[in-house]
Amino acid sequence: MSAPQTDGPRASAAPRQDVQALARDAQAPTADTDLVIDARHLSRSFGSLQAVRDVSLDVRRGEIYGVLGANGAGKSTTLRMLCGLLDPSSGSATVVGYDVAKHPEEVKARIGYMTQRFSLYEDLTVTENLRFYAGIYGVPRRTRRARVDGVIERIGLGDRRKQLAGTLSGGWKQRLALACSTIHEPPLLFLDEPTAGVDPLSRRSFWDQIHRIASEGTTVVVTTHYMDEAERCHRLSFIFRGAVLEAGTPQEVVARRHLRVVELDVPHGARGAADALRDDPRVEEVAPFGSRLRVAVRDRDPGEVARHVLDPLGVAYENCGEQRTTVEDAFVALVHEDERAHTRSQEPAP
């Protein structure tokens, strides 16, 4: 994804702007606005497996907060604790002003939650699904019909209102599920892997919708394992093996890693070149894209490092120039740091 360099107008004024720019420009609400989520030292074990270890999060009103991590890292478990679906083994969380452990029902009435599997009734129609969720979230009967009709029109399902949800495509299901989880206009919305298994085009338009929802004042917490989506959040947390490795704005997270990235075009022997680069301690990460190698180096000129490594081997390559460092680069570097720390702590003392 390319990053526009210009500073766009304010986010609220330009809902159709490139959302990436939007995420960066709409300066996340400042400290004077109160916290919608204040989670302290949450842990949760399932038997001997510790799924979440000492996770603390603070989410401010109106921001889009990303919880990033690989599958099984503990993202969903964290979200479920914040929703009152799971009791934490230890730690506490205040969500929309209520302690989740003490007043889960107060929290539940004020949040929307979209699960990984969309939670749609496949044997109900589009309208029936929306009407049902409006019903269980206590949208008054008088306004229910108008609200449902309005939502259907807005998400563009007007001519499919009588279609069974099970027969919708993945992208439409996702839209409908989002509409169902926001039918009661909650101040806080949780999205658990909302874009898993959805085509790239739908993913893109889905993030447009998330930004629209946020611009209307709803705080959004979203989990994802797609690193490109992380760039579209105001702030984020990296979760790895159940613990938070890093948190902040995407820019902060990237900047803290002090990475510089170069792309090399290696027409012949790209694999050997990649291995050689990986073996060099200065190189943080090598990612092959066809004959291209993306090389990340910490605090040095990556072109220089590449030259030092590859020239003695006689590998012919072309330097395609330095690239913007992405959240994905930062995440990979973070995981490597963590693994190195892990191995060091496990090595027996000499």
Binding site: G84, L85, Y113, T115, R117, S119, I136, Y137, G138
Partner: peptide, 14 residues
């Protein structure tokens, strides 16, 4: 099985 129970549990339904 279909994952809708989770949505019901997270709703304010008693």
């Amino acid at each position: 099985e279909r994952g809708t129970l989770e949505a019901l549990i997270v709703s304010p339904v008693r």
